[in-house]
Design a protein around this nucleic acid. Structure first.
Length: 424
RNA sequence: GGAGGCGUAGCCUAAUUGGCUAAGGCGUCGGCCUUGAAAGCCGAUGGGGCUUGAGGCCCCGUGUGGGUUCGAGUCCCACCGCCUCCGCCA
């Protein structure tokens, strides 16, 4: 959520941000209009309440002095003012909920370092690591290779759950598990993260605080009876871990890592990445989340990014890092780097991690704050990044490590986790 | 799922039958004192609105949202959370 006080002070900044994202800017004036009316009304109500408080005091006084007649007079006056207040409060509540609803629909302001652009074609490549593999035979896509090996079953998954689900068997299932453990170990043992095991079903508020709702309700699975949501990413529980709390400055940054499945309806993405396991309704992900201070959050983002990159380096998978432009930036993010891994089946780099600084956007919603050494309380900045999307990492290994005979070499760093060197 | 209990500020704890400023302690921050520290003393320590030359004024805030009342920490309802017991259960 954006800061209403900042919006009052500098509406131009927010209109500019919306323009750069390719959004309509009318909403800003609408908010300011509602806000102005709210403030005028609030002043009026405060004045009436002040009078009522005064009257109430005098009622008590009159009663103690035994002046029943005077007390009765005052009480009737208080009743009248109470009626007026009640009437105005109704309008005030309407304005408040309208304002809140509008504020929740405004995306975050892009950081000054974010390239301005319309869509993903204007994202800016930051660096490349490794060279795309050149095969001296015809390389296969994972959606062919996997079923041929009998280790990836898309048909039966369809029978059980519909499209965009997969089943893994034997060594491919183990490879998935090995990747999860490898990533968790790397981040906990070498990068200083605390491992967290979180709920996969969360309340509506939790989804709202992390920025998924109200705008993207169609994207999430919801259990109607209890109004719980399946998490689309571990970012949701992790970033709400300290909701309502006041953290100590000396405890920051807090760095959390969690492995969870992620559940996404992928509404509106029909026709995109339909084959294999690139875009499924359920996929595994190891997620990194930081709670940090405003003055260091952008430096920390670079560090978080390097932690995600390290996974690909150790797996020796070629990748590149791109800075998303304003038009491609997610709703909650101020700045985002995507890491894209080379996929032979696409003949291109494909997103495997997204690392963002959302500044105080989530912290304002979840009321996550920290106390500075001088006693001042302020919202934290939160960062999140995939470290990495496990399913796509598996795809990248299958495709990049395949051999002419259809077998797949297990990257060296994973062998202690798999217990085998070749698939099948 | 059933029965009961509880929820006060960063933390811990008070508040006659509903009534004047939510008292006190701890912690934290600032100041005094000190060679430095501790102790001690003084002050500050939730949110919002209006306004100013400094500075004020007002409202809200006892888990959340409603209700009763001239007036609610206190009474009523719903929800959330925690605890105890029963039932069910990997």
């Amino acid at each position: 959520m954006i800061d209403i006080k900042e919006l009052r002070k500098d509406p131009g900044k927010f209109k500019d941000a919306l323009e750069k994202r390719g959004y309509e800017t009318d909403i800003i004036d609408e908010i300011l209009h509602v806000d102005r009316e709210w403030r005028e009304l609030t002043s009026k109500i405060n004045e009436l309440r002040s009078r009522r408080n005064e009257i109430s005091k005098n009622v008590g006084r009159a009663k103690r002095e035994g002046d029943e007649k005077r007390a009765e007079e005052l009480m009737s006056l208080g009743r009248e003012i109470g009626r007026q207040i009640k009437e105005l409060e109704e309008r005030q509540r309407e304005l408040e909920s309208k304002e809140k609803e509008l504020l929740l629909r405004v995306p975050n302001v892009p950081h000054g370092s974010v390239p301005v652009g319309e869509d993903e074609s204007e994202n800016v490549e930051v660096r490349r690591w490794g060279d795309p593999k050149v095969f001296d035979f015809e390389a296969k896509a994972h959606w062919d290779l996997g079923p041929e090996l009998g280790l990836l079953d898309i048909e039966r998954a369809g029978k059980l759950a519909g499209s965009r689900f997969v089943i893994l068997y034997d060594k491919l299932a183990k490879l998935e598990r090995a990747l999860i453990n490898f990533m968790l170990d790397l981040h906990t043992k070498e990068h200083g993260y605390k491992e967290v095991w979180v709920p996969h079903l969360v309340k509506r508020e939790t989804m709202t605080w992390s920025g998924q709702l109200p705008k993207f309700e169609d994207e999430a699975y919801n259990t109607k009876k209890d109004d719980l949501f399946l998490i689309p990413t571990a970012e949701v529980p992790l970033v709400n871990l300290h909701a309502g709390e006041i953290l100590k400055e000396e405890d920051l940054p807090l760095k959390y890592v969690a492995y969870t499945p992620c559940y996404r309806r992928e509404a509106g993405s029909y026709g995109k990445d339909v084959r294999g396991m690139i875009r499924n309704h359920q996929f595994d992900k190891v997620e990194l989340v930081w709670y940090t201070t405003p003055e260091r959050s952008y430096d920390d983002l670079e560090v978080l990014l390097s932690h995600a990159e390290e996974v690909l380096k150790r797996l020796e998978l070629p990748y590149r890092v791109v800075a998303l432009c304003t038009g491609d930036l997610g709703f909650a993010a101020s700045k985002t780097y995507d890491i894209e891994v080379w996929l032979p089946s696409y003949g291109a780099y494909k997103e495997i991690s997204s690392c963002s600084n959302v500044e105080a956007f989530q912290a304002r919603r979840s009321k996550t704050r920290f106390r500075r050494k001088d006693g001042k309380v302020e919202h934290v900045h939160t960062l999140n990044g995939s470290g990495l999307a496990v399913g796509r990492t598996l795809v990248a290994i299958v495709e990049n490590y395949q051999r002419p005979d259809g077998s797949i070499v297990v990257p060296e760093v994973l062998r202690p986790y798999t217990g085998f060197e070749v698939i099948p």
